[in-house]
């Protein structure tokens, strides 16, 4: 059993939840990185080129003509609403977020596999992820309403997820220190 008597701290539970959220976060940051790579300033949507909506493509995708046109507007929203600094900043945050998400998966597995694993590195990793959430939140809050609507709520959710996991890792670390003393 990995739950210490009287402590109520289950390292296996902490490890699995860290791994689960690490996987979900990696998907999110990976997709954000892909998004920033694909939607580039000055690309065709920014030049006001009309959408190319062929009838056969509309049928395949199950789209109306108006929806097809709005797909271009969707890209224009990102391009027009992004200040010059936003794309490089988001690429940096999503790259760092992806790297630390992978680290959190590895560390979560370590903690779940061995309850005596030193969770200092896990605590540090979760702290960095918390900081990245905060930076994404601050960056998005300095853009217009269209990007704020896309980014603020998810980054706030991730902030609280990582705050919760960090609290659990801190409690686990304190428990370790207590048992070593």
């Amino acid at each position: 059993m990995t739950t210490k008597a009287g402590s109520g701290i289950n390292s296996k539970w902490i490890g699995l939840v860290v791994v689960l959220f690490g996987i979900l976060l990696l998907a999110q940051h990976g997709n954000e990185l892909l998004k920033q790579l694909v939607i580039t300033p000055g690309s065709v949507a920014a030049q006001g080129v009309a959408a190319d909506c062929r009838a056969d493509e509309l049928e395949e995708e199950g789209l109306s003509l108006r929806e097809c046109e709005l797909l271009v507007s969707n890209v224009q929203i990102t391009l027009v609403s992004s200040p010059d600094w936003f794309r490089p900043a988001m690429m940096l945050f999503s790259l760092l977020g992806s790297l630390f998400a992978v680290s959190s998966i590895y560390l979560g597995i370590s903690v779940a596999a061995n309850s005596n694993t030193n969770s200092l590195s896990l605590k540090t990793c979760l702290g960095v992820l918390l900081l990245i959430d905060l930076l994404v939140f601050v960056a998005a809050s300095n853009t217009g309403p269209l990007l704020r609507a896309q980014y603020l709520w998810p980054s706030l959710l991730w902030f609280f997820v990582h705050a919760t996991l960090l609290a659990a890792a801190l409690a686990h670390l304190n428990e370790q220190s207590g048992s070593e003393a």
Binding site: N31, I39, A45, D52, E57, C68, N74
Partner: peptide
């Protein structure tokens, strides 16, 4: 996400 990108054509390569 990628299905919200414009339909492909010679100019739209997103």
């Amino acid at each position: 996400w990628m299905l919200s990108l414009p339909l492909p054509s010679d100019v739209f390569t997103y």
